[in-house]
Write a protein that binds this DNA or RNA. Sequence first.
DNA 1: GCGACAG
DNA 2: ATCTTGTCGC
Length: 240
Amino acid sequence: MDAALHDWSLTPKQAIALQSQLAKQLEADDRIDPVTHIAGVDIGFEEDGSITRAAVVVLAWSPEQAPPLTVVEQVVHREPTRMPYIPGLLSFREIPAALGAFAQLKTRPQLVMVDGQGIAHPRRLGVAAHLGLWLDLPTIGIAKSRLTGRHADVGEARGDWVPLMAGQEVIGAVLRSRAQVKPVFVSPGHRLSLATSLDWVMRCLGKTKLPEPTRLADRLASRRDQKRATASQTHTTASR
DNA sequence: GCGACAG
DNA sequence: ATCTTGTCGC
């Protein structure tokens, strides 16, 4: 077995305790600067998972310009994978690489959208929330599936949503971001309310199910699209 | 004790 | 997450 995959800096027990502590530091109210740039973050893997690849895309935002938004910067950062995937502890696996990518950014966004949960997490510290604390920036989690919480059925029209509940607590929303397509799970991370989080996700929605920031980060982080980009660059170069 | 379980 | 061809639809 690969020793590197077991080189944990924290035991699961320690990580869980830390999550409960960090969750107390989250701000649930809106505290966001005027938005000119929005970042999208996603993580992918190479070499059977031994390499973690973090992708960050920064888009220009203005109230006038509806999607598609303009890409102003993008970074891909690679480093050895430190932890296996354990449901509930995703942030410890993904955040180190994400921070590596952010360190290379020239632009500091006012808002960050992350592929994964915000507070819709057993201890209210999904990867989007955790990253928000590290960056001290407003973050939103947009997940493609559910980690925790219960919810009613969502309407079929774009924009329909129902609350995601943990007992009596609202921890996010199940949003029909595109008609007839499986809904996404939106939850605030740090420094944002659910209502504001939903507003921003709706505003960044293009023609697809995912908002532009995470859709583009997703593309950059995925192995297949890396090949696609490389191939088209080769074509461009060859045709000149 | 038995399932469920982001990426 | 990732391994993967074709195929249905705008």
